[in-house]
Nucleic acid binder design. Structure first.
Lengths: 155, 155
DNA sequence: CGCTTGCTTGGAGTGCGCTCCAACTCCTTA
DNA sequence: TAAGGAGTTGGAGCGCACTCCAAGCAAGCG
């Protein structure tokens, strides 16, 4: 796993480090201000969704240009990458918002954050097990159809 | 894997066999007619949902009592168990309905059914991989919080 | 008989996660 | 200067998978 340490403005160093665990997509170097459409292209989320994430409190707080347009930072991209992972787990958006709130509240919420992630992890483990059981059924049925088709061809 | 061969009325023996792959929950022996609430309790689906499944064509066709009430058979339970598995895969209801249609159309749809299941299987494999990647991130962050908390306790 | 329980129906409502719309501002290019 | 493109907002709308509602029917019981 590659941990990319992004510049950071000095505020909440621990949270920042934690928010930037693994960045999968390479990003334009040396830049730290992206428009909403750049971020949309980069993350695969729509601009609508990005604004909506901010509205509901799932984005920490996005900088603005002098004309009021959003300017996302590398830190924001890190956060979105993490949110994307949480989304893949099937975690409800409300829970992600809760996590975001805890991050905003500061370091004294570490325990609760950890607990939330732990619960999510157990959930993910359960889901993997479920999926693997469905895989067995699917294999069984696919084999069944393969046999049936071979049989019908032979006679 | 235990394959429980349920009685069957003689119609489409292959499909029947295939529909009855693995029955996870033991069920009242010797019976073959269940009310909707029994099936609801048994499958964990609500009676509402069972009726809705029938309406949209996801249930093959449920017998009725002389007063018009539904009487589900063991075969129906087998089908519902399989549908439950498909549901766990995250397959959209519309696709499940498509599969149900193919089953109703008869044996000449084996190829298409197999293809549908194959696609689903690949999807499931992808989802398992995704979930496992999120698991890595979660572990990383949970460890991070564990370390941070231990560090803050020590000083 | 009246009451309860369980079932029936078509259609309306709900919650989630977006997704889009209308009306507007701002900046750039021709 | 005019047009076009990208951004802004609050709020409405959408698709999915249920979930519930109202009104009614049939059976069982005291």
């Amino acid at each position: 796993m590659t941990v990319t340490q992004t510049s950071g403005t000095g505020a909440e160093p621990l949270t920042d480090l934690c928010a930037s665990a693994e960045v999968s997509h390479p990003r334009p170097d040396g830049r730290d201000r992206y428009t909403i459409s750049e971020v949309a292209a980069f993350t695969g989320l729509s601009a609508h969704t990005l604004r909506w994430y901010e509205r509901i409190g799932l984005m920490p707080h996005v900088d603005r240009s002098h004309t009021g347009q959003r300017r996302f930072t590398n830190r924001d991209l890190d956060w979105l990458a993490f949110v994307g992972k949480l989304r893949l787990t099937g975690m409800p958006v409300a829970d992600m918002v809760r996590y975001a709130e805890l991050v905003r509240e500061g370091d004294h919420t570490f325990a609760e954050r950890q607990e939330l992630l732990r619960a999510t992890r157990e959930d993910v483990r359960r889901r993997i097990a479920e999926l693997q059981s469905t895989l067995a059924i699917l294999d069984f049925k696919i084999d069944f159809y393969a046999d049936a088709r071979r049989a019908s061809e032979r006679f």
